[in-house]
């Protein structure tokens, strides 16, 4: 099954990349965009297992490698 892992900088961590994108959007006329946060989307093709066990395994992988808990939060989406 195809599992999504979304990794985002924590709310309290400044995201200069998102801020730079927001400024350019404003310059392009998208002034209604008040905030941009840039994250990562990883798609993992996982073999076998039921949804719950796959979720548990992918969450473990997200904690071990895919995210850094000091600066990032993650979310796992299993179909």
């Amino acid at each position: 099954m195809l599992v999504e892992v979304r990794v985002q900088l924590k709310k309290e961590v400044l995201d200069p990349q998102g801020e730079a994108i927001r400024r350019v959007l404003t310059g392009l006329g998208f002034a209604e965009v008040s905030r941009v946060r840039v994250g990562k989307l990883m798609l993992l093709e996982v073999e076998g297992g039921d949804a719950e066990s796959v979720r548990a395994r992918v969450e473990a992988a997200a904690r071990d490698l895919l995210s850094n808990p000091v600066i990032e939060d993650f979310e796992v989406r299993v179909p």
Partner: peptide, 17 residues
Amino acid sequence: LLEVGLLPGAMLMNRTL
């Protein structure tokens, strides 16, 4: 060293990008 936890904290992209 930060990623393995031998020292504390994490590195973000430079403020200037």
